[in-house]
Design a protein around this nucleic acid. Sequence first.
DNA 1: AAATTTGTCTATTTACATTTC
DNA 2: GGAAATGTAAATAGACAAATT
Lengths: 465, 465
Amino acid sequence: MPVNSFGNYPMSWKPDLSRAESPLYLALAELLEEDIKKGILQPGTKLPPQRELADFLDINLSTVSRAFRICGQKGLLSSSVGNGTYVSSDAVADKIFVCGKENPKLIEMGGIYPHAEANLKVQQFAEQLLKGKDSLKLFSYAEPRGTKKQREAGVAWFQKMGFHTDREHILLAAGGQNALTAVLCGLFKQGDKIGTDYVTYPGIKMAAKMAGAQLVSVQYENYEMTEEGINYAIQNENIKGIYIMPDFQNPTGHIMSSETRKMIAEISEKNDLIVIEDAINNLLKANENLLPPVAAFAPEQVFCLASLSKTVAPGLRTAFIHVPRKYHPALDAALYTMNISNPAVLTAVVAGLIENGTADEIITERRLEIAKRNTIANKILKEYLSPSELSCPFRWLLLSEHFTGEEFEICAGKAGVEVFGAERFTVGNKPADRAVRISVITPSTAEILTEGLERLKKILVRHMR
Amino acid sequence: MPVNSFGNYPMSWKPDLSRAESPLYLALAELLEEDIKKGILQPGTKLPPQRELADFLDINLSTVSRAFRICGQKGLLSSSVGNGTYVSSDAVADKIFVCGKENPKLIEMGGIYPHAEANLKVQQFAEQLLKGKDSLKLFSYAEPRGTKKQREAGVAWFQKMGFHTDREHILLAAGGQNALTAVLCGLFKQGDKIGTDYVTYPGIKMAAKMAGAQLVSVQYENYEMTEEGINYAIQNENIKGIYIMPDFQNPTGHIMSSETRKMIAEISEKNDLIVIEDAINNLLKANENLLPPVAAFAPEQVFCLASLSKTVAPGLRTAFIHVPRKYHPALDAALYTMNISNPAVLTAVVAGLIENGTADEIITERRLEIAKRNTIANKILKEYLSPSELSCPFRWLLLSEHFTGEEFEICAGKAGVEVFGAERFTVGNKPADRAVRISVITPSTAEILTEGLERLKKILVRHMR
DNA sequence: AAATTTGTCTATTTACATTTC
DNA sequence: GGAAATGTAAATAGACAAATT
């Protein structure tokens, strides 16, 4: 018999299990998922305590618990002891990012797609390579782990970042996302937890979902995870790893301080925490601003992923991974399971470009082009943009209280500009920032960029009055 | 108090839980895994009934059950009601297949690697393509789902097999293994079961492990799954899907009859069973032997995977997937999570080769070359080889009672020939066949092939007396 | 500072269905 | 053909620890 007086303190959710066919725990989980997807339970809603719900439904506490766990693992709920269970803020927003081109009139500033013009040197090199001897082998199976020469190119690549590693620590993946998925699927089990920033790269959310891992957002200050935050997540959330993007954090564009890098390295060593460091933007930073990746401070604890997509060319679909020795077999197996091997043509091009110095030239070009575009962005939207270095390919646009990120995304879409609202990047149950990410590098010309930015400004100004 | 008289019927396993620190169920699972890996519990061993073990250890039945389930999901055990629990026959053999070259003196006939000489036309086409206009875009991001033209090439590819599908049913993957992993990770949950042949392509074992799915071997007759076998597995093992390779089944080389193809199509429709059809070898069959894939008979039930690795060139890392409509979103998301997109250069080459007819020429060349090699194989090892069409790139070598597959693999290795023993292909708890798979297409020349086969013959003859 | 709230984890009880003998 | 053997699944009970009040 229910003890609580439900009348006085109405429960936020009163499911009806009376005509459920499947087992109780499943029926409950299904109802919950349905109600979240339907919007009956909004993100951020606090659910009734498990005991109260059990009492109300006249079933056992553990049965409710089990149902909640199922939804929790799907990323629909996030809960903490003593505090309660909440509907995740990103429970619904689960859209795939699709490379545009569907609406040619839309100015694409959502996805970050470096423009094709800078690919000239890559194309020329590839053409030469195909003419060379041994080019027939470029269409046979490649060695799964890459050749010594290719892994050596990876070493050279990390060297540019100020991180000295060696051939035995390098594996190759078919791009940054491929690398990320391999690490998650290869090293994490269903139910394992991974700490992230409170807004983060959506690709980690997709990869985590595939691996069955749960993301929890780590407490932060000034756009950086705090020491206490990480320690708390280790002790109380039992996270097995963290995911970080120290250079031009996606989506905020923040560059992690040297102190925090060292702090994370230290904590990870002390607690045997797996660090997944996404160094995709490291080499986009200005040359005089050399900040080595966290991996440099804890090389046996950190997976350092270095995709070439943003720095050389996206079509190369290649990433180097620095792999801690003890995790090498597991990641090797995961990459083999997913890819067998990387395309021989592309890895050969990559290795060649790095070896002969062309890669450096391309990076310099890309940096200059981005800087040119950020100068334009700063001129048009200065007061709204979160500050950033000139070579960051995207910007974090802070909105007034008039808009949520999602609302602005829709408004911008109607004005013919695609941007991505903060909701797409959120983790956990904190309400999303009022912000959107805009890519300055995607529009094919500076003119189109300008037009897009002007349109955004119009929307902002119109609502300022 | 134990009821059974353990003295009389000694239990096959008497674990010692007395000094376990972790929870009972975990400690038991760990002990079990350890003892299997150490070889204390051999593949095929029947474990004591759960109740007896619980009694012996003086713990609850469910606790044992839980421990067994953990090991079962790792592929270490396979059990059936009324019958008991057995150590899986492939519990230990878990090696990665690595593309050789490490020992140059070894004649590689283990992995199936089409030789590079046939890549000439591919290389020439790629060279032309790079010279063409728009070639800069080949190094930018590609559309995740492929362009219309590329998907149209997939339609044309399936058309050659006698299977008519359309553009909306096609997705692209970065090779056959990539496709397989995407299907498994995208559509199956931890603990889901998938039926396979009793010997099967090891890649499905790796992919299943990553997805957390369990493989169960389906009853068969004459190298083909039987209707009763599939129905049994649906009803009693609760399989959610089956994996089949109807053309040149790996490793036996068997071609599935037309009747069985239709039977599988029908059962899958009736039971909403997901069929994963690996059609990698379909187009290697002789032209006059057109047998459409199972997908042709149940297109909304069958994922049909068509890698180009064995037919055109492995380095293209491309596979077309025919996807049932209802599963399209799930697979699309999985592929996006793993790859974002396929390399634009390679998919452009693939689409071009198919469109201009070069692909057909290459297939014909490959078939002829394989036939030449099988003629040699038949001459040297006729009496040992399981019969097969001339265009099958590998053969199933049946051994006498003198050898297990593994033993022969080792003997061959000592004689400088790499082959793969049946143990690498086994699923379930039936002891492996006495057989090895030999690839006739991997040695770079017919002479090397001949030498390899002669060495194998020597081993066989020496032990016949 | 102590009591209460709250989620999590392990082990147990009970019921069930299939297979074997 | 019926009893016994055997694995599987769901629901429950109890203990624990962190967070809140």
